[in-house]
Design a protein around this nucleic acid. Structure first.
Length: 867
RNA sequence: GGGGGAUUAGCUCAGCUGGCUAGAGCGCUUCCAUGGCAUGGAAGAGGUCAUCGGUUCGAAUCCGUUAUUCUCCA
């Protein structure tokens, strides 16, 4: 039987033999694309070719692409694992033609590969072609149909709808008919009962689409009309896991050798077998599937977090932990143990995971621990709720992250049901709230003149004479911004951690501020709050040079820091994130322990040494990637590189990096490099923040000024630290002494009051007016007297710092008789001082505004007691 | 980006509708008992209740700010 690695290899080799270039998979996590969080199909990395934003290096390309789908028409995260054919992460095999071959070759090769190379049974294959669409004025795709007829009998070629057989990139843009290949994997007996053609496209788990051939031949305009493209493209995608199922003749993707090793490992450690029970089977599938998605996302640089793509990853991992926890009794972190298995399994195709197994495992382990803690807290909380309403279940989920299915499970164990409808209602409320807050209206691009190419000249110039190619308006929360694309621009768009440039666009009679510059795929977009009146004018575009130069200092310093860290800490240090602006540089990197002070000091010293050496920048553009790697430049995981890259070198023996950012001409510009903080961002990831040049100077001056101020205040002691320490200790001791003295003073007053006690009506009465320094003293006296007389009735009318305060205390024995209630008494008395009060049955206090009422308080107290 | 929580002793947390001299368990210190143990007993130390501001006679508790953190949604 052909194993999965061979199946993949044969695909790549087959198309290589047909003149295709094998290219690596793009990272799973996307950057610079506001419309998408993850690569969800093979074509994503080639989008710019179809849109005409950039020119392909090869006309024929083949690859296998890591894809992630957690939402969409047929795939919701909550469904994965319940059935046997949905996945979060999957591989998509694809071959591409960029303006080269078209339908004839694509169809012929597809058939050859499936039937010749893979030996799939011809009589079990069905194909669909586009059946035409009246609204678009398109006929049946007879071209494809006729081509298929060479290989496939007429009754196995089906016409498909626009929904299934017409592919579009978006509302507008490249599109075209497609042709799908389906396979019927049912047993012979079932096939006899019902022919496969009746089950195509009807969600049958054994009659599935395995390959989609897209023929991009139109461009849909914003108006909705179609125009033929001058260059026609082929974009195909074949689900790798399904293909394996078909070739290995399995009933499900999960039965192939792609998943089985993981599933057997899970089952073994759970003390069960896959296939033993439908509940545990689901849990095993969920874990096996999810660990792939999470591992590769982390390997591609996406840490679990509480927003955006990171949150999706967190949710996937938590879902797996939840299933393991509930059905397989995994109460300790377990998912992370699957990482090495997966890394080794896919070492050849996706080396990024194998190379980072320890790092990925640590991050996952930490995330599992944190979720198990959340579960534990939730379980504790749920115990205190007797009956759980839908709203409460939602609160548990929304605020404390406690999953709904666990809540209803616990409720069921108590013989109760949770109102799921109410839960869903609350959930919907939450969703609409978020959606209305995030509403963003993006207008269509409006072209000014002819659409031309946009050129970035910011590596060499701070200004340019430019024209606007196109613009659009974007509205969010009543704030409106305009976005421009220029034919020539000196503005650096936010990328690789370096912030976007700000600056000005000036024409003869107008001046527009550019507030930010960002990338959308490869397009450089300038942001402004106003729209020029004369859009077709010539503009003098200039970036804020001061800000840019400070940013360049910080960016170059980041490279020096990276190299220094690898020298001091070791080669396991890899960039995991970076932020560079005019004020600060922030650098996240993989390292498994907090840095010691000595290490920080050494790293800082190396960087400053390199600054003083004033090493000249060596910037090389268009270096072939292999050559760049040969020079010692490290490629970052999760970063997408072209065939040619830009290499930034400060001393070939020290720092060589692939980088698109802007840099200073020589390291001396940095002046001074100062690390401000070292902290943790996640398990296995440390963060350093540092400042350079003016920023460093300000930082150092500020710290020294503060130190001097402190020293002066302390009258310049020899050893400031120990002096301060002594001072603090002394202060503490004095506070304690003051407290005991107050206590003593209160005791004296207490004794005087005790002497005035009179015994009447079976209790000891103390009724006095006194002056005290604070409420604490009053409390102390009252409690002191309570300890002294068990049948005490105390009413004190006090003047505390000019404010009247009344206290009533009742002795322990007297309290049990319930003759008096301190709280009620004090409430009555409080009226006399224009205040209010309360407390417990035996001790209560009241405050007020009217100091003059203190005497009346005592008189009234006498009356009340007699009653 | 939007919503909801949380922040109290070295650690894990109680403290209900404002007034219980701010508590528990573990840990720590000292003493006693035991050959040893995550041993038994006794005494004790340790808190600007995150921050700043407001309401109130009175705030750990109510309201707002900031910070940190957890969590859900986009």
């Amino acid at each position: 039987m052909m194993d999965s690695a061979t199946i993949r290899q044969k695909f790549l080799q087959f198309f290589e033999s047909k003149g295709h270039q094998i290219v690596p998979s793009a990272p799973l996590v996307l950057k610079n694309d506001p419309s998408l969080l993850f690569t969800n199909s093979g074509m994503v990395q080639f989008k710019d070719y179809f849109l005409g934003n950039s020119i392909p290096k090869y006309k024929r390309v083949v690859d296998t692409q890591k894809c992630l789908r957690v939402s969409g028409k047929h795939n919701d995260l909550e469904d994965v694992g319940l059935d046997t054919y949905h996945h979060t992460m999957f591989e998509m095999l694809g071959n591409w033609s960029f303006g080269d071959y078209f339908k004839k070759e694509a169809i012929g090769w597809a058939w050859e590969l499936l039937t010749d190379v893979y030996q799939l049974p011809k009589d079990r294959l069905y194909v669909t072609v586009f059946g035409g669409d009246k609204a678009d004025g398109l006929p049946v795709d007879d071209e494809a149909k006729d081509l298929w007829k060479q290989f496939v009998a007429d009754d196995r070629i089906l016409n498909g709808s626009k929904k299934d057989n017409f592919w579009e990139m978006g509302e507008a843009g490249p599109c075209g008919p497609c042709s799908e290949i389906h396979i019927d994997l049912r047993p012979e007996s079932d096939v006899k009962k019902k022919p496969g053609r009746e089950l195509v496209n009807s969600d049958h788990p054994q009659v599935v689409e395995i390959w989609n051939l897209v023929f991009i031949q139109f461009n849909r305009l914003a108006s909705g009309t179609l125009e033929p493209l001058p260059d026609k493209h082929v974009d195909t995608g074949m689900g790798f896991e399904r293909l394996c199922m078909a070739i290995q003749a399995k009933m499900s993707n999960y039965d192939t050798d792609v998943f089985r090793p993981l599933m057997d490992f899970i089952a073994q450690h759970a003390g069960t077998k896959y296939g033993a029970d439908s509940k545990t089977d689901i849990a095993i599938r969920v874990m096996a599937d999810h660990v792939r998605a999470v591992s590769f996302a982390i390997a591609d640089g996406q840490l679990p977090s509480n927003t955006g793509a990171g949150y999706v990853i967190r949710r996937i991992l938590r879902r797996a932990v939840r299933y393991g926890f509930s059905y397989l009794n995994f109460k300790e972190p377990f998912m992370y143990r699957l990482v090495p298995l997966l890394g080794i399994q896919l070492r050849e195709v996706f080396p990024e995971l194998h190379q980072q197994m320890e790092y990925v495992g640590r991050v996952m382990h930490e995330e599992e621990i944190s979720f198990l803690r959340t579960l534990e807290r939730g379980l504790k909380r749920i115990e205190s709720i007797p009956t759980i309403t839908g709203v409460q279940a939602f609160e548990l989920y929304d605020t404390f992250g406690f999953p709904f299915d666990l809540t209803s499970l616990i409720a069921r164990e108590r013989g109760l049901a949770v109102d799921e409808k109410a839960f869903i209602v609350e959930m919907e409320k939450q969703k609409t709230r978020s959606k209305t807050a995030a509403v963003k209206e993006t207008g269509d691009w409006i072209l000014i003149g002819d659409e031309g190419k946009s050129e970035f000249i910011g590596y060499d110039h701070f200004s340019a004479t430019s024209r606007i190619i196109k613009y659009r308006r974007v509205k969010q929360k009543s704030k409106e911004v305009f976005q421009f694309v220029l034919d020539k621009t000196p503005f650096y768009a936010e990328s690789g951690g370096q912030v976007g440039d700000t600056g000005k666009l000036e024409s003869i009679n107008e001046k527009i501020s550019v507030i930010d510059t960002k990338k959308e795929n490869d397009l450089i977009i300038h942001f402004a709050e106003t729209l020029p009146e004369k859009l077709d004018a010539e503009f003098y575009a200039s970036v804020d040079e001061g800000k840019r130069k400070l940013t360049m200092n910080n960016h170059s310093a980041t490279h020096l820091l990276h190299a220094a860290l690898r020298q001091i800490l070791g080669k396991h240090v890899e960039q995991k994130g970076s932020l560079v602006n005019e004020k600060i540089l922030r650098f996240d990197f993989s390292h498994f322990a907090a840095m010691t002070e000595v290490e920080i000091y050494k790293v800082e010293a190396i960087v400053n040494q390199k600054v003083r050496e004033n090493i000249r920048l060596n910037e090389q553009r268009d270096v072939p990637i292999e050559k760049a790697k040969g020079m010692g430049a490290m490629a970052l995981f999760g970063e997408k590189y072209g065939e040619h890259v830009r290499v930034i070198t400060f001393d070939p023996k020290f720092s060589v990096e692939l980088c698109g950012g802007t840099h200073i001409p020589a390291t001396g510009n940095i002046g001074l490099f100062k690390i401000v903080s070292e902290s943790s961002v996640a398990a296995g990831v440390r963060r350093i923040e540092a400042v350079t040049a003016e920023g460093a100077q300000e930082y150092v001056n500020g710290s020294l000024a503060l130190l001097n101020e402190i020293k002066t205040l302390l009258k310049n002691p020899k050893d400031t630290t120990s002096f301060l320490q002594n001072l603090l200790e002394e202060k503490h001791a004095l506070e304690k002494r003051v407290e005991t003295m107050n206590q003593e003073q209160a005791n004296q007053i207490k004794d005087k009051l005790a002497a005035k006690a009179v015994k009447i009506n079976g209790y000891t009465l103390i009724l006095e007016r006194i002056t005290l320094p604070n409420v604490e003293a009053l409390k102390n006296i009252a409690y002191g007297l309570r300890n002294q007389f068990e049948d005490l009735l105390l009413v004190l009318a006090t003047d505390i710092d000019g404010k009247p305060q009344v206290a009533v205390m009742i002795g322990e024995k007297l309290e049990t008789t319930k003759r008096f209630h301190a709280g009620n008494l004090v409430k009555e008395l409080a009226k006399e001082i224009d205040g209010g009060g309360g407390g417990q049955p035996f001790y209560a206090t009241a405050g007020g505004r009217n100091l003059g009422g203190l005497q009346t308080v005592l008189d009234k107290a006498k009356l009340l007691i007699k009653e």
